[in-house]
Structure formats: C-alpha cells, structure tokens
Design a binder for these strands. Structure first.
Lengths: 347, 347
DNA sequence: TTGAAAGCGATACCAG
DNA sequence: CTGGTATCGCTTTCAA
C-alpha cells in the first residue's frame, strides 16, 4: 500500500493524507481520524527511503564498531551498549545502521558514511587518544556521540562514559585496604582512553597510600582470555609474585582464574568487575554473582544515555553534552580480607 | 557532490554518467575513464536512498537479534556471527540494518521490516521449534537465511548451522571413553533448536554406550554464568554427583568452574567448547587455549557462509540452500583420562 | 482546510 | 554511444 493509493481510496489528495499521518496541525480532526483508521486498516507503512529522500532525514543511527584482527572474539561490550541504545531508538523510530571495520579501514568507513549520508548521527565506539575520527566527524557536521572520551582533542564534543579512573582508584584502594602491597594491573590496550584512565586511577590509589607502583606489575594488551592467562602465569612465576590482580575485563579475568587454578592457587576472588551499583554491599553478602548483571546494566545504561543525547542533538543541535556515569569497577568477591594466595608458591 | 553536478562538470548527461559508473556496456571506454576519474576526484558517492528508490534495491541486509530480558548479557555469538557476515557484506556493498527486539516484539519487527522494505534480505537468528518467523518471511517473499534450523517447518528454507548433534554426540562419547558414567548436561533453553539437537546427540552417545541417561543430570535454561554456577552447585551437592559436565556455553562453563572451585574440586577441565577444528589434536598438546579462538572461528565462518548464501539468493533467487558446518563441540583440556573430581566430595 | 505541482537524487526507457 | 524524460514514493511550498 502506498500513499497515493491510500489517498485515492479515501477520495483525498496525497498531500492531505501525508499531513494527517505526520501530525500536521492544518488538517481537520475529522479527516485525520478517517485517514488514520484507513492507514491502520490497510497496514500502510510509508516507504522509508522515499521519505528519507524527500526529507533528507534517514532516521537511522550509525554504529561503527572496530574489530582488531587480534581480538579473539568481538567485545561483548559493543553488543550490550547497542542493546541499550536500541531501546531508545525503537521508541523514537530510528534504525541502526551497523558497520564493522578492521582498524585500518576505519577512517574510510566514517568518511563513506558521512558522504553517503546514510545516517543522521553516529556513535563512536572505543575512542583512542588523539582520535582522528572526532575531528573528521566534526568537520563533516554529522552529529555524533562518543562512547568514552578521547584526550588530545581541542574541539568540544558529545560523550558518554563511565567513571573509569574513579572506579579503578577505588578498586585499588580496596585491595590495599585488604592488606595487599603487590597488586598487578592487567589492563587493556593503553592506546585506548578508558585503559589510560583506569591505569591512572590505579596509580593514584597506590601513590596516595604510599605504595610505589611497580611498572613490572602493570600490563597492557588486548583483553583476551589468553592474555589474562599468560599475564597471570608470568607474574605468578616471579620471585615476588603479586598477591592481587586488578583486571580490566571479565574475559581476561577468566584467563587469570585459569592460571591461578593451574598454579594450585585459590584466588582470593580478586577478579575485577564493573558494577553500576555504587556501593560495595554485595561484597558482603555475595549471594549473587554480580559480574555479568552489573556489567550489563552499566553498559546498557551508557547505551541508553548516548542514544538519548544523540537523538536530541539531531533534533535540536546545541552545545556538546557530557554524561559521566558513576559506574564502579569493583574487586573481588571475598568477604574476608584477601588471603595472599601467591605465598603458597613460596611455601 | 551529486550526479547532476558531476555530469554538468563533465559536459555530459546524468544518464551517461550513471551508466559509466554502474558499468553499463553501452558507454565508450574513453568517457567511462573520464567519468570515473572525475568521480574519484570529487569523491562522488551516489545517494543510497535515491538509488534504492529508483532501483527498488536497498543494498541492506537485516539482522534481527532477539533479546531475552532474562539474559544477563547479549549473546556474544550474535556479534561474532555478524562480524563474519559483515566481511562478505563489505565486499559486496551491502549494509547491515540491525534490529534488537525483545521476544514478544519479534513477529511485529519482522512484519514491519518486510512492509517497509528497508532490506533486501534477512538473517534469522536463534530459531525456535515451529518458528513462526519462517512462515512469515516465506509468505512475504523476502529472501532470508536462518542461522540454525527449525524443525516443524514444512516449507524448505535456507539455513546455515553447525553440526550440533554430532558435536555433542562426540563430546559425550569422549567423556564416556575417559571412564565417566555420570555426566551432566548443562544445556541451553531447549525451546531453541540447537539445544534440542545437542541434547539428542548427548543422549544418543550415552545410549549407544549402554548408559541410561539420567534426566536429573540434564539441565536446560538460558545460558548465563549464574545458571552454570547454580546448576553445578546443585548437582555437586547430590549424593551421587556427576563426574563430568558437558556444557552448552562458555559463559555457563565459567559458572561451573566457579562452583567446582568453591566446592574445593579441581575440575578435570571438563569444560565445554565449540571448535571448528575437526580433530582432537589440541587436546594432546594443550599449548593454547582454544576456547575463544575456536568459538570465534566457527561462528564467524557461519556468518560468512550465511551472508554468501543470502546475497546469492537475493541476486538470483533459487531453491533453498543448506550448509552444515562440521564444527566440533569438544570437551576438556586434560590429556590424561579425566579424574573423577566429584569423589573428593565423598572422600 | 485542501490540493496541484515541484522537488529529493538517482535509474531506465525510448529516441536519436 | 549519448541524451531527454518519466519514474520511484513521499514531502512541501504555493494557491485556492
């Protein structure tokens, strides 16, 4: 069913029908009701491409997700973020236009999307320091929101981020307060902004507590299971192994768990976790494992907020908006002060 | 830059320029070269919506991913599958149109997509038995490929699937051959086709080896970490705990590992894994942890194949195509016959 | 409050 | 081989 047919079947002009459907005020309520009813009855769906061509609005949001070829699997965070965003999109009538690019192809991908005008706005995932994409998008004038932040950018831009620095500072403080002195940081690639922030939160905490951060205990790489495993294995083989791990991803954390397993150690559950919940209460009861639920709720919420901001920017462009989620990266599951499992090695 | 402008700048008609760019034969090679050069120079990108409106082809593939609200995180399999598919799409010039729907909204989502004609084809994820989506899509005549299979469908349709039954049969056989008699199946929701197939492979293997499958040891639910944890915890608390686990997802497997950890057991690495590799060689060397790489390569390959089939169907509709990937679901990492860790409970 | 007609940016038929 | 023009389905002035 197309607009013209609908119009004819009602004895009206396409103009009027279009106006009725799109809620223009200059249509009498009587005709509007008639039109709406008929539209319903015939299950009329306006052709989005025709509409887009006429209005210049595509009612679509682009998500470009970078795929490091070394990644063993796609970062689940992307999916959860998108799930959150799509709740908003669905409500507001936007579609998701997904582009998966390898690291090299990234700039070209953005350029193409902008040139083709296939979307009204873009979500930028996994920003890096001095990220060229931000300048690129600003220059083409396509609204965008960054999931995360990029330092080294002079222009203001929209972003949504969780409070990574604060989360890691707290996590590290927590470990220190449990009595740990040698804490390993198994971090993500520190070309990524979030990893840099996490590291600095970590260092801040140690320094504030009078502990000299040991560079040998601060690792950085793509966060695979393999990476967590190898890192932990290597670290535990040292003469002075760490007694706690602060890790930047659950996937890598599983690798760490495997390594401690193999070493015959029982980790004091010093596995890392991002929690949107702001307090440590679950650490005390431990009834539910909050790793996944917390991660999800945090990332989804970020997706929702980013989508909301982006749509708002599309509808009425204004000054950039920031949104810092007070998410937590919490540590461990043990209710008692953490044991120093590594001592078993030397025992 | 638009076609008309490009044409004018070349002193040609839009018609000719369009023909040159789209590779029509009736253009002299000289003009074509001129046109292509100019297009390059001006970074001309045809407006996809105008093109779509004119041709009736949207050059987009729809992926509809269902999101059970109970899921703690988005199934990473979707992302990896899409990553694989998008390799093909990128090459062939298709875009991805992503729709995330909650279980209830699903049928409507498909109906809308079909009615709006925003895509040239659809990938159906996570089919269920007697899946209504298949009849729906067949009836509207939109090309589609199912990732997985659905029984109870009379019409023929395109699908790509890994050999779940065979994989689980083999996995179970492997465990039996290691000496296990009480093997738990921690399966996915058995309303899902793949889970049903896995279960039947499992049962087949036991039966063939003269072991009566114990219904109490066969669990089915959404595959969360929590589910794996609770299942294992409950099972291990029995008077006659299982000595091995066959599990349907790595996420749940991590939960199982946690439970065995807590029980003071050292799993004989009876963790489950999908591997595209067809032999068991890595079980002997164990140098690398193949869980993630194998999963990824298998699912990505499925994505690639599905995309290939779908695009082919779009271009020249023909009889349905099946593609059964010979992926493996393998068990454990131990090179020696598995210990019976559960005995420790009774010791 | 309604309608006629001119776009939006491409494709494709029909002439030349 | 090249060009004029109708067309795709909808929106949006401009007139009535």
């Amino acid at each position: 069913m197309k607009l013209k047919e609908l119009a004819k079947s009602l004895g009206l002009s396409p103009t009027t029908v279009s106006r009725a459907i799109n809620g223009y005020p200059e249509v009498s309520e009587a005709t509007r009701a008639r039109v709406m009813a008929a539209a319903q009855r015939h299950d009329y769906q306006p052709n989005p491409r025709a509409k887009a061509l006429a209005t210049g609005q595509s009612m679509a949001i682009g998500h470009v997700i970078p795929l490091a070829t070394r990644h063993e699997m796609v970062n689940p965070v992307f999916a959860d973020f998108i799930a959150g965003a799509s709740e908003i999109y669905a409500r507001e009538g936007f579609d998701i236009h997904l582009t998966v690019v390898s690291d090299e192809g990234e700039e070209k991908a953005y350029r193409d999307i902008a040139a083709k005008g296939s979307v009204d706005g873009i979500i930028v995932h996994a920003p890096r320091a001095n990220d060229g994409r931000i300048a690129l998008l600003s220059s083409v004038g396509l609204p965008f929101v960054v999931h995360g932040r990029a330092t080294g950018i002079d222009a203001a831009y929209n972003w949504v981020d969780v409070n990574n620095r604060r989360a890691f500072r707290r996590a590290a403080e927590f470990l220190v307060d449990l009595g740990h002195r040698r804490i390993a940081l198994v971090n993500g690639l520190e070309t990524m902004e979030f990893a840099m922030r996490r590291r600095s939160g970590f260092v801040e905490a140690l320094t504030a507590r009078g502990i000299e951060p040991d560079p040998d205990l601060m690792l950085s790489d793509e966060m695979t299971e393999q990476y967590g495993y190898q890192s932990a294995k290597t670290l535990l083989a040292r003469a002075d192994p760490p007694t706690a791990f602060l890790c930047s991803s659950m996937i890598s954390a599983f690798g760490i768990r495997r390594a401690t397993d193999e070493a015959g150690l029982k980790l004091g559950r010093d596995l890392s976790l991002i929690a949107h919940d702001d307090d440590l209460s679950y650490l005390q009861n431990g009834a539910d494992d909050p790793i996944f639920t917390a991660l999800r709720s945090s990332v989804r919420e970020a997706g929702r907020r980013a989508a909301t901001i982006l749509i708002d920017q599309i509808r009425n462009p204004g000054p950039p908006v920031h949104d810092l989620l007070e998410a937590e990266f919490l540590v461990g599951r043990s209710t008692a002060p953490a044991p120093h499992p590594a001592r078993a090695l030397n025992a």
